[in-house]
Amino acid sequence: MLFGSLSLYFVATLLGVCALFKRPLCGLLSVLLMLPAFGLYFFSLFYSYLREKTFPLGDPYGFISFLGNLFVPTFLFLTYKYRNLLGFAHLVAFVGFLATLFALPSSPSPYKSTLYGLHLLFASLSYLFALMGGLSAFLRLILERRLKKHVFFQAYVPLDSLRRAERLSINLAFLGFTFTLIFGSLWARTQFGKHWIDDPKLITTLLLWLYYALLSHLNLLKKLKPRRFSEGVILGAIFSLINLFFVRHNF
């Protein structure tokens, strides 16, 4: 199934490149192919769970593969609403292709626990929302700067939509990190006999949760100016990337 997903992502990438040469049908076909490509990846994940009783997310390869593939349905949803985004189909398809490649050397998690699987699932969603929020905030700042300078250009996503996206993203990131810590605590209780262990990754994830809790509540109370809020969202995305790629578990 993974090779089928890779093949579809590869063809979708080529069609996306073709769409850059004023071939709108190629862009539409590229988007349509990404849906079954993601479906095959998802079914391979589910099949692995049925076979191994755990998800193949036991190493950075599997985790990054899952996170990268999550961008695909997010893009498909946005494309349905904003057709101008079809011009980025080749990039998203290529991200899906690379992410699925990472799944090939991935290994199953050594902890065959549903709680641990849910912990990883919500962690992946949390990072996705954090990165989407950072991207929305970054694009919003660029768009506002160009509008202030009266530079006219084609905006792929309206400014109001970017504002809503960054607010929604940080709230979902906060919610995701909340469930990440909850399921991580429940799993630690069954695995180590206590709800909390002094693990670097868990500590930095707790700090991320506190950061997004503060940011979302300051936004709710309207204590931050829009620009400062966007800068805070971008900073949160950077912290999330550091935690994802450079902080490791010690168990």
Rank of each mutant, 00 (worst) to 15 (best):
S136R: 11
T54P: 05
A237S: 10
K223S: 09
Q154T: 08
L235E: 04
K22E: 09
C18G: 08
R146Y: 14
L15C: 03
Q191N: 11
L125S: 14
A173E: 11
F152L: 14
F77W: 01
T74D: 02
P158K: 05
L28A: 12
H249I: 01
L29G: 04
R146V: 02
A188L: 09
G58W: 07
F10Y: 09
L8S: 08
Q191D: 10
D198P: 03
G87K: 12
G236C: 05
I238L: 14
D160L: 07
T178R: 10
I182D: 12
R83W: 00
S5D: 01
L162S: 01
T190A: 13
F179L: 15
R83M: 00
S161R: 08
L224H: 07
S65T: 07
P60R: 04
L141H: 06
L78K: 01
R140C: 05
V17M: 15
T100N: 13
A237E: 03
K112I: 11
M132C: 13
D59P: 02
L159G: 00
Y80G: 10
E166W: 04
G193Q: 02
I197A: 06
H195P: 09
Y49E: 02
S216V: 05
L115T: 11
V31T: 09
F66A: 15
D198Y: 14
F177G: 09
L15D: 04
V95S: 05
G58Q: 11
L118Q: 04
L181V: 14
A89C: 08
A137C: 01
L141Y: 08
G236I: 05
E144D: 10
K148N: 15
L101M: 15
H150M: 11
A137V: 03
G236P: 11
P105F: 13
R163H: 11
A155W: 01
P158R: 05
L121A: 14
W209F: 15
L86Q: 05
G236Q: 07
H217K: 03
